[in-house]
Design a protein around this nucleic acid. Structure first.
Lengths: 351, 351
DNA sequence: ATCACCGGTGGGAGCGCTCCCACGGTACCT
DNA sequence: AGGTACCGTGGGAGCGCTCCCACCGGTGAT
């Protein structure tokens, strides 16, 4: 049972002290070298590095965390695992970006689920215990208490998809407004004039911004906005179906639909087909997210691509900056950080 | 529940010692209570628990890890983030299961990417430093050195998708053989007789097992296996296209295709449509994975569903058992653990 | 010459926990 | 009665690291 002195000499990992002995220096000096302090002579540094290599020394994270009161870990908090969010490429793409950026550092990534009440309670304990240096928040609802908890505990955090225009947390977002504009402008350029919009859940800020983009693209092109062409959806396929039916009932002459998500576009497509409307001849269709569904739809769906992987990278960058800033306890001298990344319209046969 | 006056003391979280003082007992006793040791009287336990509640005590993981030489963390190693694996629901579903099962415990989940060489090297260091109590391995190639490294370091590990019939690691798998059988039996029951199979990469054990299931389902139904109807694919859409073209060239009278993945089925469908074959009238099509693509394909694709979430749960169960077994240093007295979970055929319009 | 200073260094003092030994007490033997 | 067996309990001794203070010798200023 790995007793205290038991495995120390045989199989155990070398310690700082052993490296120090080997390099003929003190413990403090080795620590300085490991942590990249500049206050070490070149000769000493070289000797220590040699010893580290020879012994295959790897710092003990637990000891470091205990002594330095930091964890070198950040948490990615995933709310409601059962939603579309999790199944969409969104999550994995973001993770890809996060992972890539993180691999440049010594930080480790913790995945924390906060779906059930039980999980959320555990999370609160977790944060209270300061077991991570920072937190990444994704797809958070407007009324979620988590951001406030983080602010109160003074734990650095970055949120993807700000909750409102007045988001207080550092945030990363894609340009929902611009993305929506580009979709509508594209449809206009294809000669469509009666362009409907199936919105996402309007308590999601990004969905609101897409509506804004839709409106202003029309206005800027000299078209009036017909409120009957704006139909609220909820990001689900069934919601897309319902919205499309409603639209067709109200404005049978609709000649284009901009859906706030690919999934809703898929629902809309089903209804259009059932009603005998040919895509894109009768009705052009544009989605949002550029997910796998878009590529595999029949016809393939024009969609707005978000740079999700870059958003992941961005989140890490901002979070690390935030953590670094807080280290020397400069207190709250930080300006509010924010990143908004550009979207791209991927044109396919549906429009 | 929230610590009242305790929290206001600026000095940070309460320690074991403070809890002990408050409860009027020694440090060791509090430790025993926290860790659920039975060697504590009921009265003492109650007093300690009260003190814990009042102070809002949460154990310091770093200190515990340092003293006890364990981490209470397990790692999920994700190889090659760029593959289909990551984008498919596979990953998120598995994560869902893993998360659900893990939330019953105190363990935390680390996500480690092992795509690039750099990342793999970091991973090796990680493992060498024993920074996790156990490892979850997913979608590992047959020639990956990782499993051997884990065995050598004696780190408990569970692999999803064994690399071969002789897999030495504890493994969790879905019943690829049975899944393939059910697909073929279904096609036979629909009166199809010239059933082709587009295989996955045959260096993947699961893909081999699907071929086995395909063969034996035919044989058991009294049909000969026509090797010309077995066409190797590679799990990609383009591979599915190529395979389908080849099949049509060789056996134009094929009346059903069982593809080893939905993505390959999507490729096959494109070719079938290009060649004017109607699904399912001319050719029935069955996929594997029951992914989003299957539901959104036109016509919707019959597919074999794997209980991925349960596989995730299973992996955790097995890993925790393995870790627990290793704790009292019973050495290698463990039988080889293995779990194989049943699949389910989801019938849709394509067959 | 003296003094102040500074870069480079060694090592003590913890960080908060677990492990384990020692200890007093009770219960049961001989 | 003494002995032996436990219980439940307290607290010392670390775990491997960072932090920080003291120290040393070499500068440049006085």
């Amino acid at each position: 049972m790995a007793g205290h002195g038991a495995r120390s000499r045989s199989g155990g990992r070398p310690t700082l002290e052993e490296v120090a002995a080997r390099a003929g220096v003190g413990r403090g000096t080795v620590s300085r070298v490991i942590n990249g302090s500049p206050r070490v002579s070149d000769a000493t540094r070289a000797a220590v590095e040699a010893a580290v290599d020879e012994l295959g020394y790897v710092p003990n994270t637990a000891a470091r965390a205990l002594a330095a009161n930091r964890t070198d870990a950040i948490a990615l908090v995933v709310p409601e695992p059962e939603t579309r969010f999790f199944a969409e490429p969104y999550f994995s793409d973001m993770l890809k970006g996060v992972g890539a950026e993180l691999s440049e550092t010594e930080m480790q990534l913790l995945l924390i689920f906060a779906g059930s009440d039980r999980e959320r309670q555990r999370l609160a304990q977790y944060l209270a215990a300061h077991r991570v240096d920072g937190v990444l928040l994704v797809s958070v609802h407007a009324d979620d208490p988590l951001p406030d908890l983080l602010a109160q505990l003074e734990i650095p955090a970055v949120i993807s998809g700000p909750r409102s225009a007045a988001e207080t947390l550092t945030s990363v977002d894609s340009d929902n407004y611009g993305g929506a504009r580009s979709a509508v402008e594209h449809l206009l350029s294809r000669g469509r004039t009666r362009i409907a919009h199936i919105t996402g859940r309007l308590d999601v800020y990004g969905a609101q911004r897409r509506v804004d983009g839709y409106r202003e693209a029309l206005l800027d092109a000299g078209h009036a906005v017909d409120e009957h062409l704006i139909q609220p959806g909820d990001f689900t396929e069934e919601g897309g179906r319902r919205a499309m039916k409603e639209l067709l009932a109200r404005r049978p002459d609709v000649d284009a639909v901009f859906a706030g998500s690919d999934v809703m576009a898929a629902g809309a497509r089903q209804v259009l087909r059932e009603e005998g409307r040919v895509i894109p001849d009768d009705v052009a269709l544009v989605g949002y997210d550029d997910s796998a569904i878009a590529r595999h739809m029949d016809p393939p769906l024009t969609s707005v691509r978000q740079p999700i992987e870059e958003m992941g990278r961005s989140m890490i960058d901002l979070l690390l900056a935030e953590i670094a800033d807080r280290r020397p306890a400069t207190s709250r001298g930080l300006e509010r950080r924010q990143a908004v990344l550009a979207t791209e319209l991927v044109t396919r046969a549906s429009s």
